[in-house]
Design a binder for these strands. Sequence first.
DNA 1: ATTGTTTTGAAGTGAACACTTCAAATATAT
DNA 2: ATATATTTGAAGTGTTCACTTCAAAACAAT
Lengths: 197, 197
Amino acid sequence: MSRPRSIPEKDAIERALILFWDKGYNRTSIADLGEAIGVGPSSIYNAFGSKHELFEKAMTQYMGTHADFVNQLFADSESFSTTEFIGELLSKLVMLYTDTSTPPGCAMMQAGGSGAASDSQACAVTLTMKTNLESALHDYFKSIKYKGEKLSAPPKILAKFVVGTIRGLSQLACDGSSRKDLIAVANHAAMSCSNMN
Amino acid sequence: MSRPRSIPEKDAIERALILFWDKGYNRTSIADLGEAIGVGPSSIYNAFGSKHELFEKAMTQYMGTHADFVNQLFADSESFSTTEFIGELLSKLVMLYTDTSTPPGCAMMQAGGSGAASDSQACAVTLTMKTNLESALHDYFKSIKYKGEKLSAPPKILAKFVVGTIRGLSQLACDGSSRKDLIAVANHAAMSCSNMN
DNA sequence: ATTGTTTTGAAGTGAACACTTCAAATATAT
DNA sequence: ATATATTTGAAGTGTTCACTTCAAAACAAT
């Protein structure tokens, strides 16, 4: 009964995601987004409300598609030893961060920034997701400890260590480290979590 | 023979450093800097040339004062085992990142951002310094290997691992992790570098 | 006191940006 | 064909920003 959109919502969000991922939140202007999506500013505001809301939708889509394997891996965590599980998690993240068909690094971390350099609006969304990851890892390590496997440090510390490593990997990828090197770093970090190797 | 500056250069740079450290490069405006230093925009441009040049001076001062211990530690590296040396390095960095008398995290990493979210002008300076750290670590691990100590991974990989860990620690500090927890993470990472513990 | 040099405050410039407005365009349902 | 509901392009708004201009102010040396 009404005029249809010139581009499906999902495709528009994906193009926005790539831009945010590549240039960051603040450095991506509405004009840039409009050009990439192929519409004017008014269409963006009509469809998404604001730059910030579009960014949130882009990050959600990122988590649901590009980074979807993380949730699947947590669901399958019982099939792995600690070293295997963390190794799989970190390696697959490295594969994503060094995938040449998308911008380098982690979209959430690179697009939103962090701390002082955080892109104000973007910070809140991405901080939530980072916090979720840390508590998921914390829960994981606690359950491992409960089962009697020997961890090399308390669950809380290992969770922070792994989150820190993930952030480091994302930034190393952005600064040009090779996939091969980063996989080696990932495996090194994974092996350090358990005393049973 | 001429009108003196209203504030010594070093003090002005220190105030600028704190601001950049706290808010990042882009979010710190010339007006902000002027207010903090106690002068108008024209004085800043007269004294420092541009926002970017002031930022560079601030980062150089940061390296020469707050983060000076890094160079000293590398100079004394022969007095430590690998685990001790990396442990000292990471722990002292954590002390700096969680010092409540200065903004959280590493000034260079937080103020300049990285990758996509990098504050354009700031990126180049900080990237150079990060690269220097990685090659210093690389050299260190190579010399250790040469001396016959057993490393848990190749020098190149360990160097990247440590740099990644440092970046992770800075961000964890910014997001509110306690000094105690981060010291534990630092020690865990340090122990993972050598097989002789 | 006068001179010479530099700093400083006040005002201003042009560009970039997020966001708005609204009439015209475009499709569907009748 | 016409009515209806939504999208769209073009133009514009107000703000923020890095940076400039320049005459007055502040000091040291003479």
